[in-house]
C-alpha cells in the first residue's frame, strides 16, 4: 500500500467513524441504548485493564491455539496417509466431501453430549472446522510435488519415508501454510460462536453474551466485538506474512527463487 492510499484509507475510516458518532448522538442512542464510537473506544481501552475481559480473551485464544495445533497434527499426517495409499484416499474421498460442508456450529449439540467440559467441547469444534482447509491444501500440495526431486532422492538411496520427509513435506509447506491461514480465521469464528451459542464459563463469546443480557453494557459489548476483530486481523496478518516469507525462501519448484 502506498503512502497516499494509506492516507486515504485513514481518512475514509475517520469519516465513517465521525458519521456514526454524529448519527448516534443525534438520535440519542436509538432504542437499544446504542453507544457512540468514541464511547466504544473508551470502553475498549478500559477493557485492557479489566481482568474479567482479558481472562475471557485468553480463554478463547487458548481454545483457538490448541484447536489449531491439533488440527495441523491431524490434517497434515492424514493428508500424507491419504495421498500415499491411493486406495485409502479414494475410499475416504466421499466421506470427506460429505463431512466437510457440515457447519461446525451445527455440531454444537453433539459436542455438548460428547465433551461435558466446555473447553474440550469448544476445542473439538475448532478442530473440526480447521481440519478441512489444512487437509485439502495438504492433499493438493502432495499432488504438486516435483517428480524429478523425488527421483533424485530415490537415486541417492532415500526410501519412501525419507523422500516424504525431505521432499514432499518441505515442498508442501507453502500450501499447508495457506490452509493454516484459512483455518485460523474459521477457528476464531467457531470458537466465539460456540461460546455465544452454548454459554460456558469464560471466553470472548461468553463475555459478549453476558454484557448483552445484563443490559446497560452495550459499550462493553461492542468493544468486545471490536477486540475480536482486532485479534482476527492480527492473526491473519501474522500468517499472511509467514506465508509470503515461505513463498520467497521456499520456491516450490523451478528455477526462479531469490535473485
Amino acid at each position: 500500500m502506498t503512502g497516499r492510499a494509506a492516507l486515504r484509507g485513514l481518512f475514509g475510516t475517520l469519516a465513517a467513524v465521525a458519521a456514526a458518532e454524529v448519527t448516534v448522538r443525534a438520535a440519542g442512542g436509538f432504542s437499544g441504548d446504542l453507544p457512540a464510537p468514541t464511547q466504544v473506544l473508551a470502553a475498549a481501552g478500559e477493557q485492557l485493564a479489566d481482568g474479567e475481559f482479558t481472562d475471557a480473551v485468553g480463554a478463547t485464544l487458548r481454545v483457538w491455539a490448541y484447536g489449531m495445533l491439533i488440527a495441523v497434527g491431524v490434517a497434515v499426517p492424514a493428508g500424507f496417509l491419504l495421498s500415499s495409499i491411493r486406495a485409502l484416499g479414494t475410499a475416504c474421498q466421499a466421506i470427506v466431501e460429505f463431512l466437510r460442508p457440515i457447519p461446525s456450529v451445527a455440531l454444537i449439540p453433539l459436542a455438548l453430549l460428547v465433551f461435558p467440559a466446555p473447553d474440550r467441547m469448544k476445542t473439538s469444534l475448532v478442530v473440526y472446522a480447521s481440519v478441512w482447509p489444512i487437509l485439502l491444501n495438504t492433499l493438493y500440495a502432495l499432488r504438486q510435488v516435483d517428480r524429478v526431486q523425488l527421483d533424485t532422492l530415490k537415486v541417492f538411496g532415500f526410501g519412501a519415508a525419507a523422500r516424504a520427509w525431505f521432499v514432499s513435506l518441505p515442498s508442501s509447506v507453502p500450501f499447508i501454510l495457506t490452509g493454516v491461514r484459512v483455518s485460523a480465521s474459521v477457528a476464531l469464528i467457531v470458537a466465539i460462536s460456540t461460546e455465544l451459542l452454548a454459554v460456558g464459563d469464560t471466553g470472548i463469546g461468553t463475555y459478549l453474551a453476558q454484557t448483552q443480557s445484563a443490559g446497560g453494557q452495550t459499550d462493553q459489548m461492542l468493544a468486545g466485538a471490536l477486540w475480536a476483530g482486532v485479534i482476527g486481523l492480527l492473526i491473519n496478518g501474522a500468517l499472511t506474512t509467514a506465508e509470503r516469507r515461505a513463498a520467497r525462501w521456499w520456491p516450490v519448484s523451478g528455477k526462479e527463487g531469490v535473485a
Binding site: 516435483d146 524429478v148 526431486q149 527421483d151 533424485t152 532422492l153 530415490k154 537415486v155 541417492f156 538411496g157 525431505f166 521432499v167 518441505p170 515442498s171 509447506v173 525462501w249 521456499w250 520456491p251 516450490v252 519448484s253 523451478g254 528455477k255 527463487g257
Partner: peptide, 30 residues
C-alpha cells in the same frame, strides 16, 4: 532396485536440486 554405487545427473537441474536448501546442504543431504 536403485543400486547403492550409482549416482545420476538429470537434465532439469532446476528441478533436481531442492530449492529450499542451500547449495551446501543439497550436496550434504545425499
Amino acid at each position: 532396485d536403485v543400486p547403492d554405487s550409482l549416482a545420476m545427473v538429470f537434465q532439469s537441474y532446476g528441478r533436481s536440486l531442492l530449492p529450499w536448501l542451500s547449495v551446501r546442504d543439497n550436496v550434504a543431504l545425499v
